[in-house]
Simulated assay, not measured.
Amino acid sequence: MYHRFRTALLVALVAGSTLALAACNSGVVKRVSPPGASVQQLTVRADGGWDVALRLQNFSSMPMVFNDLSLALKVGDEDAGTLTAKPAVSIGGVSAEVVTLQLQPASGARLVVADALAGNRTLAYSLKGTVSATPQEKKQRSFDVDSRSTLNQAPGLPGVLR
């Protein structure tokens, strides 16, 4: 019986010291990771221009202010144009925000999007360029973005791809 009590006491002491050590190391790790960018929605306006809802994703563990962006948008195999902005939007750690930008696309890109909408087909796109952001209490940094994805026609919303 004494042996069981001693073993139980030893286990309790080890568990308690492990918890105490874990509590001492509970500080939040501040990590800066490259952000992401993707097209959340592309809306074709009556004048042929596009409204591009751009999703900016902060993968860092701390808030970052997104200062500048310059992203070349390609739809299918056609260059559409460059999305440029100075959004000055603060995005919390591991969060996202959407900014809407206007673009007057190249004629070839307009045809690709019109064809996808008319045929209810998936539209492949890519974004390539840079996003400048300032992590909390740090200096502004420029991050390369190179992403690819697809958009589909939004049901019941003519001229809208999501």
Rank of each mutant, 00 (worst) to 15 (best):
M1Q: 10
R6I: 14
R6L: 13
T7V: 12
A8S: 09
L10R: 09
V11M: 12
A12P: 02
V14P: 04
A23W: 12
N25Q: 13
R31F: 06
V32C: 04
S33F: 07
G36W: 14
Q41C: 01
G49A: 12
G49R: 15
W50K: 00
W50N: 05
R55Y: 00
R55W: 02
N58C: 04
S61C: 10
P63A: 03
N67T: 15
A72G: 05
A72D: 12
K74W: 02
K74L: 03
V75D: 08
E78Y: 03
T82K: 01
L83E: 03
T84A: 03
T84P: 02
K86P: 00
V89I: 15
V89N: 12
S90G: 13
E97H: 08
L101W: 06
L101M: 09
A106Y: 14
A109H: 07
L111Y: 14
A114I: 02
A118G: 07
R121W: 01
L123A: 09
S126N: 14
K128T: 13
T130G: 09
S132E: 08
S132P: 01
P135R: 03
K138Y: 07
S142G: 08
D144I: 14
V145I: 15
V145Y: 06
D146P: 01
A154C: 12
P158V: 00
L161K: 00
R162Q: 11
